[in-house]
Design a binder for these strands. Structure first.
Length: 274
DNA sequence: CATCTTGTTACGTT
DNA sequence: AAACGTAACAAGAT
């Protein structure tokens, strides 16, 4: 579920714990989300630390604590963050629980595709360095996008948009929304997107990512009416622009929805005989 | 019971 | 070496 804007929403769910000391940790230790981390060290070092700040980048989050401690979270497909009362008792899917005096911070994830990372050190962790520019930042330039797409020239443009090293934070529904607005067939190879569409693609990436942030990240509200979002998963969904029945197929390993009428494969136009 | 899922990654092939 | 396609991961919803 969580893409850029949803991740930002969940990150803020722990804001109520800023400035507060972690008094205890509870985990479901053998769960997949803890794969690859020194869990014992993590559990021993975090109690006593104060949650100082947090940030999100794409689908990833970083929580900074006192004592040079850093916690990285990825929500995977079904991860959520929330805050509960101090007397909260973790349920089945509440795999990481940080107790504080007035709040309990909870990371739940039924499907366990999420991930917990941990780092101790005075500077930011390695896994938080050299991040690709976020699509909502000034660093996400047209030239950079163009270079990325030409590097992955044979990848369907839909599959390219899903790659987090190129488009951090964009996920399945946002990619479909973007391609629909750019009037691009999701199947076409990245290198054969015409120059004019490339400009539109870049603009629509910004539009969709900023629009999603505006509607979703403060209160998890749906995007405005008229977005493909609302028609996307409905059976018999229709294109909001022209009413054509939407098509569904697997592209780049993901279910993709698009309008066959306004998202055309671009063809070489025949010369008009004079 | 079968099939679906808003994500990533390991692995094999080109 | 880099790019690409696919299976696998886990569990709930339909």
């Amino acid at each position: 579920m969580p893409e850029l804007a949803e991740v930002e929403y969940y990150r803020k769910q722990w804001d109520c714990g800023l400035g507060q000391t972690i008094t205890a940790i509870r985990v479901h230790a053998k769960k997949r989300i803890f794969r690859g981390i020194a869990l014992t060290q993590f559990m021993e070092s975090l109690p006593g630390a104060v949650l100082l700040a947090s940030e999100a980048h794409g689908k990833r989050m970083l929580f900074r604590f006192s004592n040079h401690l850093w916690l990285g979270l990825h929500l995977g497909m079904t991860g959520k963050l929330r805050a509960e009362s101090p007397r909260f008792k973790p349920a089945k899917h509440d795999h990481l629980v940080l107790c504080q005096k007035s709040k309990t911070l909870v990371f739940s994830d039924p499907r366990l595709f999420g991930r917990v990372l941990f780092h101790q050190g005075s500077s930011k962790p390695d896994w938080w360095s050299n991040l690709p520019p976020s699509p909502i930042s000034a660093g996400f330039t047209f030239g950079r996008m163009q270079a990325y797409l030409s590097r992955h020239r044979n990848l369907p443009v839909k599959a390219a948009l899903l790659r987090q090293d190129g488009f951090p934070g964009i996920g399945n529904w946002m990619a479909d929304e973007i391609l629909w607005r750019a009037k691009l067939d999701p199947r076409i190879p990245s290198h054969s997107v015409p120059q004019a569409h490339l400009r539109m693609l870049w603009r629509m990436i910004g539009f969709v990512c900023r629009g999603a942030m505006k509607s979703i990240s403060p209160a998890f509200a749906d995007p405005p009416p008229g977005w493909l979002f609302h028609a996307r998963w409905r059976k018999g969904g229709q294109c909001p622009t022209d009413g054509a029945p939407l098509i569904r197929d697997t592209i780049g390993g993901r279910t993709t929805v698009w309008c066959p009428k306004c998202q055309r494969k671009t063809r070489v136009r025949k010369e008009i005989p004079s």
